[in-house]
Amino acid sequence: LGYIETQNITRVTEFYLMGFSEDPEGQPFLFVLVLSMYLVMVLRNLLITLVIISDAHLHMPMYFFLCNLSFADVGVTSTMVPKMIVDIHTHSTVISYVGCLTQMSLSIICGCMDDLLLTMMAYDRFVAICHPLHYQVIMIPCRCGFWVSVSLVFSLLDSLLHSLMVLKVTCFMDVEISNFFCDPSQLSFACSDSFTSDIVKYLVGIIYGFFPISGILFSYYKIISSILRVPSPGGMYRAFSTCGSHLSVKCLFYGSSIGVYFSSAFSVSPGKGALASVVYTVVTPMLNPFIYSLRNRGIKRALWRLLRKTGLSQSLCHASGLLVGTAAKRSI
């Protein structure tokens, strides 16, 4: 890709995703790494979704939110990562105007859903631990479904707002985007009021960033306060371990996403911004199933029941028995 002068460009038909173009030598390693992480993330989340849907014991609010979180994780990653993998493989950085707008809209919808669902899951744990006697009254199925529907509406509104901001622009200052996907904060407007667009961007960031983070921190503050009153050391250790892992993955998600969203106000290199984007688009969706599901006893039991239903567990046991028998014969 040759040098593109920074000027007022009208009738834009394509953009250039410059996220990892600065390091062509590291792209083969990046291709293998991101592809592996993407496949692991998709398989884990789809497995968790299948287990929750197929097992009646898991038809509870916590697992309902977790199932929706898995869908949102797969959605937000699948709108960005496959395009990046293809671009690395073909050594291309071009994306069409329509493709950019579509990718941006879908990624915002799924990202906001992810954001709001993490807040709901924190509130669910707050009610379960701090108000266990009222849990069945507060977290009724219709109310949980209503909250998820409202979060979808808010996600659509956020996506619509960003799309309208881009559609009203008749010319761009630059067609290079310092990321591996169409990040709305990286689009440089030349013929519009940049002050107004910046105000809207920061206002949306506060609404969809500050308030959910505040809700999560408040919920875990109350949870930790309740845990400290538990006399059992073993129970305190398990609770702190769970809360610590939850907060760690939430800090990764919010820290990297907020950093990328507001990075347009600072001189951040494309490589650093793209690397931070990989954290919340690939790493945290890959960690979510392990943090929220695979360490959960209910999920483990449901997974084992699913394996027994499909007969896969018997096949595994039979295969392991054959291997042990073969090894014993060889030793004799």
Rank of each mutant, 00 (worst) to 15 (best):
L50D: 01
F172A: 03
L323T: 09
H131Y: 06
F240H: 01
V282H: 12
A302Y: 01
V200A: 05
T196K: 13
F266R: 12
L50H: 13
S194K: 01
Y208Q: 03
S194G: 00
L39S: 12
M104L: 13
L17T: 08
H162N: 12
M18F: 07
F210I: 08
D23A: 03
Y123S: 15
L307P: 03
S78L: 14
M84K: 05
I129T: 06
P270D: 07
H89N: 15
P141E: 11
G325C: 12
K300H: 11
K329H: 15
P289D: 00
T93L: 10
S219N: 00
I85M: 07
C112P: 13
V94F: 09
L228R: 12
P233E: 14
L30K: 14
P184E: 04
S315I: 15
G26A: 13
P231A: 00
T281Q: 01
V153K: 05
V200I: 02
D115Q: 09
V175P: 02
V32L: 14
D23K: 10
P231R: 00
V169M: 08
L160E: 11
C144F: 06
P28S: 02
L101Q: 03
I129E: 05
L294H: 00
V278A: 10
F262T: 12
V74H: 01
D115W: 05
C67K: 10
E25C: 15
F253Y: 02
L294Y: 00
D73Y: 05
S21Y: 04
I177P: 00
F195R: 06
F210K: 08
S293A: 05
Y3M: 13
L217W: 08
F15D: 00
P82G: 14
V32G: 11
L275N: 15
A56Y: 14
S96M: 15
V268L: 05
E25I: 12
I52Y: 06
S54Q: 05
N68Q: 03
G259S: 04
A190N: 11
D114I: 09
V127E: 13
H91F: 09
P132S: 10
N179T: 04
R229P: 13
F31P: 06
I206S: 07
L160H: 14
S331P: 02
S256W: 00
R330G: 07
Y97T: 11
R295E: 11
G271W: 06
R125K: 07
M121Q: 07
N68I: 08
M41D: 07
I216G: 01
F71S: 14
G311A: 04
L116K: 07
V127G: 15
S151M: 01
V324I: 11
V260P: 00
F146W: 13
E25P: 03
P212C: 11
R11K: 05
V12I: 11
M37S: 03
F290R: 01
S293W: 08
A276D: 13
M139H: 12
L43F: 08
Q186V: 01
D124W: 09
S155R: 02
I199H: 00
P141F: 07
A56F: 12
L252A: 08
T242V: 12
S96W: 10
Y280R: 10
P24I: 01
K168A: 08
F253P: 00
L275V: 15
L152Y: 01
K309N: 08
V169F: 13
W147Y: 04
F210H: 06
H57D: 06
I9P: 10
S320E: 15
L118W: 02
T79L: 11
K222F: 09
I88W: 04
M41N: 06
T49D: 04
T77W: 10
